[in-house]
Nucleic acid binder design. Sequence first.
DNA 1: GCATTGTGGATAAATTCTATCCATGATTGA
DNA 2: TCAATCATGGATAGAATTTATCCACAATGC
Lengths: 165, 165
Amino acid sequence: MKLGSGVEWSIHCLALLGALPPGRSLRLEKLAEFHNLKVAYLRKHFQALSKAGLVATVTGPQGGYRLGRSSDKISLLDIYIALEGDDHCFRCTEIRQDGPCANPALDKPSYSIPCNIAVSMWKAEDAWRKELAKVSIADVLGATAKQVSSEKMERMAQWLTEALA
Amino acid sequence: MKLGSGVEWSIHCLALLGALPPGRSLRLEKLAEFHNLKVAYLRKHFQALSKAGLVATVTGPQGGYRLGRSSDKISLLDIYIALEGDDHCFRCTEIRQDGPCANPALDKPSYSIPCNIAVSMWKAEDAWRKELAKVSIADVLGATAKQVSSEKMERMAQWLTEALA
DNA sequence: GCATTGTGGATAAATTCTATCCATGATTGA
DNA sequence: TCAATCATGGATAGAATTTATCCACAATGC
Ligand code: FES
Ligand code: FES
């Protein structure tokens, strides 16, 4: 069970967008440059983020991306779902309905309720989602501000100023 | 993020092994037949389960597989780890150390602690694991016994008797 | 010895992930 | 209006992973 690289990329990029001055947007190319990511592939991920409404797009000169809503309203779970879909990661293929001991006619009633194995797995998944839902882009920004030296914060602010110029 | 089919297959099979009379084992072929699974591929999964000690093997005539320890000591998490490894599903590629604003020399101290994004993701993963660790094969067996009609339980007991004959 | 059963490595098909490109359409500013 | 800027979405292809099969081999019990 592995998350695609798009999840990490997107969290970093959305955090940067969250640090933009109000009303401004940043070109995809700059977003990639800041993190040293492949532009073409990042573009693909941003199409998904855009479709999910997590980022809004500004076309034309001085255009680019900005957050689709305020940074405290975008959770890590939102990002995951936008990129990798809303399916369960555990897939119950209804093995219980198969094999020499199955009797579809007789057993049908019991199949209307999800099998207990799937329930257990999905419960764990829910716990995972709940944790992710707790953390917003605003939280990430706040935590990063505490982790990074004020000197690096300065470097980043400088870069942003030039990128937005 | 998807779990491989081996996880579901293995849970079903270990549950069946957990229902075996004490001291008995079941051939892989029979295990596959019971669930209508592909023998060759199930074999591959059982190699992993065996290496992890979740099943013990009995070679030779009347041989097969049995549980490696009591069914209440085998959790769904054990099975997941045996099959898919113990890595984090979120991979922090240290994007934070890259890009035009990074200065390895100056920033090195802050990289000794995990970045806050990874910490959030790993925390969610821990919640997931904790839930899976709570559920044992014995629990699965118990829950299934409650879900399945006594009539089907009888059919399965019958099949087992023949398979062990 | 001999039939039975799992082991572990080799192999390959199918699917998903990663990555790139380009024709298109929308917007802005001159 | 025109030209430059910028995202969109589909097509495409290589890489990696998952799914699946096979076989020579080792271990066991009779
Ligand atoms: S039947 Fe296999 S997990 Fe539901
Ligand atoms: S640097 Fe990207 S998640 Fe840690």
